[in-house]
């Protein structure tokens, strides 16, 4: 039992908290529940959960402040939950260090899928912790950092310098939603409004090149109005399709 992942659910609404608890229970996860920000911070320090599901509208604290506090000592995946009309809040939370977001009302399946993505990131991080590998592998995608080349199913993908930089940035943050602003800052340093348009174009080109192998699942996910994310692709699930 102890090797089952521990999830912390921070949600002030009893009904939604209950729904999440029941879902996690049926899927065999361990979980702790917190009703507000201070409880959440306490739980994080005492139980050291692997993933946190954080509602942004808490009664006692700004969700963003909780993220910043947690990020002070932990890099555990944080998935924020908020209503759809508040895109700006989500972007703020992501920029503060959250990994992913869920939009209310979310389906149970969606929540579980996001959880799996986050847990996969945790495992990948743990495996990579010991050895600083110069080769990145994700499904059939390979990046050779030393050679500065990317391969799809063994054959090289021809990328422009910017596309390669974008790919590396996304690969290093696999599983995490990167906001437009974050990407622009990382790739272009400073940026202007016109660069937002070019980012869209480069991303579209990059996605096309990665998808040309015919794989059904895209490696890069678009979150319109928010940003992009590199998904961790299971090699086995990819090959079975």
């Amino acid at each position: 039992m102890s090797n089952k992942p521990m999830i912390l659910v921070v949600e002030d609404d009893a009904a939604v908290r209950n729904l999440m608890a029941v879902t996690l229970d049926t899927q065999g996860y361990q979980y702790h529940l917190a009703r507000n920000g201070s409880e959440a911070l306490m739980e994080v320090t005492t139980h050291q959960p692997e993933v946190m599901l954080l509602d942004l509208g808490l009664p006692d604290m700004e969700g963003v402040d909780i993220i910043r506090k947690v990020r002070g000592w932990s890099s555990m995946p944080i998935i924020v939950i908020s209503a759809r009309a508040e895109d700006a809040d989500k972007v703020e939370a992501l920029d503060a260090g959250a990994d992913d977001y869920l939009t209310k009302p979310f389906s149970v399946d969606e929540m579980l899928a996001r959880l799996r993505v986050a847990l996969r990131r945790v495992h990948a991080d743990q495996q990579a912790a010991g050895s600083e590998t110069p080769i990145y592998e994700n499904g059939r995608l390979q990046i050779d950092y030393a050679a500065g080349c990317a391969y799809m199913a063994g054959s090289e993908i021809h990328l422009t310098p910017i596309e390669y930089k974008l790919l590396c940035l996304l690969a290093k943050n696999t599983g995490k939603v990167l906001t437009h602003n974050y990407i622009l800052k990382e790739i272009w340093g400073s940026y202007t409004a016109s660069d937002v348009g070019s980012l869209r174009v480069f991303m579209a080109m990059l996605r096309k090149k990665l998808q040309s192998d015919g794989g059904a699942q895209p490696y890069i996910q678009t979150h319109i109005g928010i940003g992009y994310r590199m998904l961790r692709i299971d090699r086995s699930s990819e090959e079975s399709q």
Binding site: D87, A193, V196, G197, R200, A204, T222, I224, G225
Partner: peptide
């Protein structure tokens, strides 16, 4: 309006 340049394909997918 929060106007930004967006690809139509992305809006359609969403």
């Amino acid at each position: 309006l929060h106007l930004q340049s967006e690809l139509i394909t992305e809006a359609v997918e969403e």
